[in-house]
Design a binder for these strands. Sequence first.
DNA 1: CAGCATCCAGGCTGATACTG
DNA 2: CAGTATCAGCCTGGATGCTG
Lengths: 134, 134
Amino acid sequence: MPAGPIAPPIAPLTQMMAEYSDPSQCPVRNVLDQLGDKWSVLIITALAHRPYRFGELKREISDISQRMLTQTLRDLQADGLIERTVFPTTPPSVEYKLSPMGRSFLVPLSAMVDWAFEHFPAIREARQEFAKAA
Amino acid sequence: MPAGPIAPPIAPLTQMMAEYSDPSQCPVRNVLDQLGDKWSVLIITALAHRPYRFGELKREISDISQRMLTQTLRDLQADGLIERTVFPTTPPSVEYKLSPMGRSFLVPLSAMVDWAFEHFPAIREARQEFAKAA
DNA sequence: CAGCATCCAGGCTGATACTG
DNA sequence: CAGTATCAGCCTGGATGCTG
């Protein structure tokens, strides 16, 4: 069985495969479900720069609805990726920032982002080619 | 502006942010939309080992429906991540395998998988903590 | 064996209106 | 300012039955 160019990555992938049977128990499923949603990555990306208040985020990610912003922030907080701090001023102010774990997530995320930028032209070409063939 | 522990990743993330306005034009959106779906990663993972035939994949990923398998395979093929080869035997046989680009994708994917495995315990804890607080 | 067409339920998502 | 609540549309995704 020739190893091919990328032997190392396969080990964890195999492990994932073994554990996927119950999606709720699969670490990768759990992470990708979060990533896959429409807004998590954008929020994490914004928070990679600096802490934001709710309204600031709303403006930064202009086309997110208030509901989705609230919901996604809560989910990210529940997973421990971001920290929420309430300042009991009047009017109240709430700050969101990446937790240490959230910051550590930027590493694999940026690897994905790099790959996406590098290969997106090829993907676009492939899609056009595929559409033409059909 | 202190750089913090992970300065490098932020650059591409910023770039992503700048281009996200039109989701269909955002490389990251495009890639993550594919990743985010329920089956792509599992299929890519399976194909990381060796080429598979349709029925083999169906059995390997036992709880995928035929429809979703067909559809996901087609999407991945359209993006140029996998290659489809038809052997005109009777009965027909179709083989799926990762393209070179598909194999290159294993690198960032495995980074995500590694991160997921490493931090999943902490995420589970955070969720329980969060649920308790609420 | 591999794949398509149809039907259908459920969840995601946004718009809107209201609260502390 | 920072949310919550309710409602309605859409689209994903599964089950079933049929074709080459």
